[in-house]
């Protein structure tokens, strides 16, 4: 059987999701046994063109926030049979999209100062805003086990189901004491799981990096957070950490009002 040709690319991101694959140390040989990696800049010394390979599956990390990102995403799309949004930035815009709320011009001047005029940047968007996407691996960073399962499934032509359970479900299975009940802010009840509730397990409330769970009860979340003293712009900041570009305007109003 011919091995699946897999490529890894990155746009506006920290490249931590690619690093997550490299950190699957004891399973890397299994991965190489199952697929052929044709491009993976972060892991190779290849010095040729960056987007010049044909792949069966391209894993694309990062949001689209420059013209270069946008045209490169189109190139990758045209040279890959399947495209996977790889991690929160590509999946939902992620932390890069915080700037969208502040205003792209303001953000550019703050970041680049006098050189702002030299740099092009646009609002940070998920990959799916620019090209059709076949699947997504959620999270900041992606979950190692889910990633490996995804690659092995793809190698035999199968597709992993998208997890539907909110973070709370896995958190209970892990027998973590509820951080919300302890008084922390936690977005676990409305956030898509699949992360094994890793943040609450280490005592920190969920920040929502995997995006909204299907059918999330946003009004209830808002009411509970308000009882916790989190409202208005503070609530907006918390939600916008990962989901500034992920919610529809209706969802946003339900969750944080008009802040």
């Amino acid at each position: 059987m011919k091995k699946l040709r897999v490529a890894f690319y990155s746009f506006t991101s920290c490249e931590g999701c690619q690093l997550t694959l490299l950190e699957c140390e004891d399973r890397l040989l299994d991965v190489l046994g199952a697929v052929e990696i044709v491009r993976f800049r972060e892991a190779s010394s290849y010095e040729g063109g960056e987007f010049d390979a044909d792949a069966d599956i391209a894993f694309v990390e990062g949001s689209i926030s420059t013209v270069h990102d946008e045209s490169a995403a189109r190139t990758v799309r045209s040279r890959s049979k399947k495209l996977v949004a790889f991690g929160a930035c590509a999946d939902i815009g992620g932390v890069n999209a915080i700037k969208n709320r502040e205003g792209v011009e303001t953000a550019r001047e703050r970041v680049y100062g006098p050189a702002a005029a030299w740099i092009h940047s646009s609002a940070a968007r998920p990959l799916s805003a620019v090209v059709p996407v076949d699947a997504a691996l959620h999270g900041c960073p992606v979950d190692k086990d889910e990633l490996i399962r995804f690659i092995f499934a793809a190698a035999v032509g199968a597709k992993l189901p998208d997890p539907a359970a909110p973070v709370c479900f896995e958190c209970k299975l892990r027998q973590t004491a509820c951080v919300f009940q302890k008084g922390e802010v936690c977005l676990g009840p409305i956030t898509r799981g699949g992360c094994k509730a890793i943040c609450p397990a280490f005592g920190s409330g969920c920040d929502g990096c995997r995006g909204l769970a299907p059918d999330a009860n946003l009004l209830l979340m808002r009411r509970l957070l308000k009882e916790r003293g989190l409202d208005g712009s503070d609530l907006a900041r918390r939600v916008d950490l990962f989901n500034a570009a992920a919610l529809t305007e209706d969802q946003r109003r339900e969750l944080i009002g008009h802040a």
Binding site: P166, F169, C171
Partner: peptide, 13 residues
């Protein structure tokens, strides 16, 4: 159901 997140915590425990 206005008070339900449909999160499955109830069935998990």
């Amino acid at each position: 159901a206005d008070r339900c997140f449909s999160c499955g915590a109830c069935t998990a425990v």
